[in-house]
Computed example of a mutant assay.
Amino acid sequence: MTYDTEIIVALPLEDFFKKLDDPANMKHWQKGLQSYELIYGSPGAIGSKTKLSYKIGKREMVLIETITAKNAPHEFHATYDTKGMHNVQENYFEETADGHTKWVSKNEFIPTKLFYRLMTLLLPGAFKKQSKSYMMAFKQFAEHGTSVATP
Score class of each variant (00 low, 15 high):
23 P>D: 03
37 E>H: 14
16 F>H: 12
11 L>G: 00
21 D>M: 03
110 I>N: 13
26 M>K: 15
20 L>R: 12
52 L>H: 13
55 K>H: 04
4 D>H: 14
90 E>V: 10
44 G>T: 02
91 N>S: 15
87 N>S: 09
102 K>M: 12
85 M>R: 09
22 D>Q: 14
69 A>F: 06
34 Q>G: 13
16 F>D: 01
144 H>A: 10
17 F>P: 03
80 Y>P: 11
137 A>L: 00
22 D>G: 13
52 L>D: 01
122 L>D: 03
93 F>E: 07
107 N>W: 06
105 S>W: 08
30 Q>A: 03
8 I>V: 13
103 W>C: 07
135 M>E: 14
5 T>L: 09
54 Y>A: 10
42 S>N: 11
76 F>R: 12
34 Q>H: 11
114 L>T: 14
120 T>W: 01
62 V>D: 08
150 T>M: 13
56 I>S: 13
100 H>N: 06
68 T>H: 05
144 H>I: 06
146 T>C: 02
51 K>N: 11
2 T>R: 15
13 L>K: 02
25 N>K: 12
89 Q>P: 01
31 K>T: 04
151 P>L: 04
120 T>H: 01
6 E>T: 11
82 T>P: 01
52 L>Y: 14
100 H>I: 01
111 P>T: 02
46 I>K: 02
102 K>D: 12
16 F>W: 08
71 N>T: 13
105 S>I: 07
85 M>G: 05
14 E>Y: 00
49 K>G: 04
119 M>T: 09
94 E>G: 08
124 P>E: 15
93 F>A: 03
80 Y>I: 06
60 E>V: 04
8 I>W: 04
95 E>F: 09
7 I>C: 01
78 A>W: 12
119 M>V: 07
47 G>V: 06
22 D>E: 12
36 Y>A: 03
50 T>G: 06
120 T>Y: 02
102 K>L: 15
17 F>H: 05
69 A>D: 13
32 G>I: 11
56 I>V: 12
83 K>Y: 10
122 L>W: 04
80 Y>M: 15
6 E>H: 06
56 I>M: 14
61 M>W: 07
146 T>K: 14
1 M>W: 02
4 D>Q: 15
99 G>A: 03
65 E>L: 02
114 L>A: 08
96 T>D: 07
100 H>Y: 08
102 K>A: 11
